[in-house]
């Protein structure tokens, strides 16, 4: 990396929530701008510096023909490309359209569907270009974002766990909501949020997407067996933020009958 690396933040189809996590790093942001040149970050400034970029953070899914081209250009201009959030890593909530006919969606949502140019699917960035790192979550976790940026600056491997939410849940000492009767996606979901939902007495919604070796069928079958959920509930649980992530897609489809 050059003396003061150039960081660009790009937005595709998304709600901006992940970019806002970067803005949420209030205390750290000043320090970050001291060591990094922020070359493009429309949430924070209108100024756009030309490439190439040392690191690009990409938020959002590829949902329009324009985005399909844009991501190729960004890849060419970026030494390291990190996709951030459920939209960029798995298509996001809008990937629900992959399970339906996009024409029905467009005419249901827009008054003038004829003006809408959209692809039939919402897809992850990695389906279009090579991605160097992925940060999961809807939205991403601020500490993970800082960890990746700092690790890259210091040329070390970032600490991004691939195991289950349960490990974080147990480390922080939360008593398991699942075993106490609330359906929880934690055992099949990747860690990184520090088990936020169970710590607030809720089941994990799976917003960090599939963990390294998810066994969705076993978890789902147990919930059905214990009358914690019906198959239709499981379809919904696997198809929320990461419906198009292969392991969740497969599990969700298997309960759709």
């Amino acid at each position: 990396m050059s003396e003061k690396p150039k960081l660009a933040v790009w937005k595709f189809s998304s709600c901006d929530g992940c970019q806002l996590s970067l803005l949420d790093c209030e205390d750290e942001l000043l320090a970050i701008t001291g060591v990094i040149t922020v070359a493009n970050f429309v949430e924070a400034s209108r100024e756009v510096l030309p490439g190439p970029y040392d690191v690009s953070l990409v938020e959002g899914s590829v949902t329009t023909p324009h985005e399909k081209e844009l991501i190729q250009e960004i890849r060419k201009e970026s030494a390291i490309l990190i996709s951030i959030g459920a939209c960029a890593t798995a298509g996001g909530i809008q990937a629900l359209k992959n399970f339906a006919d996009v024409k029905d969606y467009v005419s249901a949502v827009y008054a003038h569907p004829e003006y809408i140019k959209t692809l039939a699917t919402a897809t992850a960035i990695s389906e279009h270009v090579k991605v160097d790192y992925e940060l999961r979550g809807c939205p991403i976790n601020k500490e993970q974002l800082l960890e990746v940026v700092i690790a890259l600056l210091q040329k070390r491997r970032p600490n991004i766990p691939l195991y289950s939410v349960c490990i974080e849940c147990k480390r922080r000492g939360t008593s398991c909501v699942m075993v106490k009767g609330t359906p929880c996606m934690g055992p099949v979901t990747q860690a990184g949020c520090n088990a936020l939902c169970p710590a607030h007495n809720r089941g994990c919604y799976g917003c960090f997407g599939p963990m390294e070796m998810p066994n969705g069928r076993s978890l789902g079958n147990w919930m059905i067996d214990k009358k914690m959920a019906e198959p239709k509930d499981l379809v919904r649980m696997f198809r929320t933020f990461n419906a198009d992530a292969p392991a969740f897609k497969e599990a969700g489809n298997s309960y759709e009958k």
Binding site: E147, Q154, M211
Partner: peptide, 22 residues
């Protein structure tokens, strides 16, 4: 599920990893 809950709650399991932060 390879979720690791059994090892986390087991009172004798002792395995650990180290992580460096900067």
């Amino acid at each position: 599920l390879s979720c690791a809950n059994c090892t986390m709650v087991c009172p004798t399991c002792f395995c650990s990893k180290t992580e460096d932060t900067t």
